[in-house]
Design a protein around this nucleic acid. Structure first.
Lengths: 236, 236
DNA sequence: GGATCAAGGACCCTATAGGATCTTCGATTG
DNA sequence: CAATCGAAGATCCTATAGGGTCCTTGATCC
């Protein structure tokens, strides 16, 4: 949890190859991202630069750099001279917009990925679906975290398999691995079996080699996700 | 009244506003962005943190923050312990991917914007087309810069008029005002009249209130842009 | 002559200090 | 009692210093 203080750089356990050296800002970035996704930092909470630095035993400089990167992901928002705060909770309007955008982008990803599918790609996707089935579905975040991770991984893999860097960027702009975690304010997973079947249908369509069928399967999946979420929406 | 101008800040020959809610990192960000788009920083060139700080008469700290934000836009790339470099020039493969992504996103934007078009929106779009006609089309960057700006503004306005923050983010992920400027390695503007007519056609379709026609007009425009660029591609 | 290596400089990275600003909370006043 | 003002603390922001790393250059050696 705590990062090393100044001075000692972790010597590689594998002798001879200092593969990818990480800088403190990278560690801080990952730490903050994990805190945000685990729910330890709740929407609206302040993220103090100095406070985070003290907590992680680093100086404020790398924390500033990490937060500057996080801001561009939409996870945190900055107000000049006031600091950073965790982005507010999703509204139903936000959710509707997100689904509209997913419906525009993800079927295209499926169509493009279908044309480039390789056995290795298929194996990765199949593993994501398998992980989805194995994942626990309890009510607490710790329990459905793995489920959400596998879900997001499935969709991100398809984006990456398009071979189009801009489609990957567009998918990431939706907050890929991020916004999804914030939709469930403790609601947990509902209708997991149905969702898994839809993922399997997308996978089958991809492996069939039919691009249009793949796009249709993905579109149907997103629409059904939207329908289920609306049905389960808390009446606030 | 804390509006008294403090003479502490070294007024560089670049910055302007005495009292501003902006911090130095914002100024540095804008300055770097302008340098990148003006071509003063060429692809592949190193962007030194300390050097930039000296040039702008600021300390390296705000420069680090500005570069951390720029990295996420794809304009510059960072290698740990080595620094930042301007992203390399677009290849034809990159261009093909960009057009594929635009073809997936921008027609959807047109369809959504059409349903929400207001007179104010129309006026903004019409002004963008008018600016496109008025802009000079000389061979040097300074001459076709205004043209590119109006072009990008037209497309960005449509994205914003969808009222969908995620479609705006997805459009921005394409590098909206950015990548466009890097496609032209001094090639200048070709077939401007044709492009302007296509923009006008999109505008007409939007004002007709027909969403599908709007989407089709946008799709046709993007496809023709791709066709023209391929025809003009330098044989490298 | 070509390769190796050491020295120097430029640069990146982190920590620390101090000024500027915002927020909180208690005191003062109508 | 309510509203306003002011001071203290926390926080943000910027500058500066110093250590670590990378790259260039020039000298040494085979």
């Amino acid at each position: 949890m705590q990062l090393a203080s100044s001075g000692n750089r972790p010597e590689g356990h594998f002798a001879g190859r200092p593969v990818s050296r990480q800088v403190l800002a990278d560690h801080v970035y990952e730490e903050l991202l994990a805190s945000l996704m685990d729910g330890r930092l709740e929407p609206g909470a302040a993220v103090s630069i100095d406070g985070t630095a003290r907590e992680l035993n680093v100086s404020p400089t790398p924390v500033r750099e990490a937060l500057a990167r996080l801001e561009h992901t939409g996870m945190v928002r900055r107000v000049a001279l006031k600091g950073y705060r965790v982005a507010p909770m999703f509204t139903q309007e936000d959710f509707a917009e997100l689904m509209e955008a997913r419906l525009a982008i993800e079927p295209v990803n499926a169509r493009l990925a279908c044309a480039r599918l390789t056995p290795a790609h298929y194996a990765e996707l199949a593993k994501a679906v398998a992980d989805l089935e194995k994942a626990p579905r309890g009510p607490s975040f710790a329990e459905y975290r793995d489920y959400l991770e596998a879900d997001e991984r499935f969709h991100r893999l398809i984006a990456e398999q398009t071979g189009n860097q801009f489609m990957v960027a567009a998918y990431a702009a939706l907050g890929g691995q991020v916004q999804r975690f914030r939709l469930f304010g403790g609601a947990g997973i509902t209708d997991a079996d149905q969702a898994i079947a839809e993922h399997q249908a997308v996978l089958d369509a991809l492996s069939s080699g039919d691009p249009e069928r793949s796009a249709a399967a993905m579109a149907e999946h997103v629409q059904k996700v939207r329908g289920r979420a609306i049905a389960d929406a808390p009446a606030d």
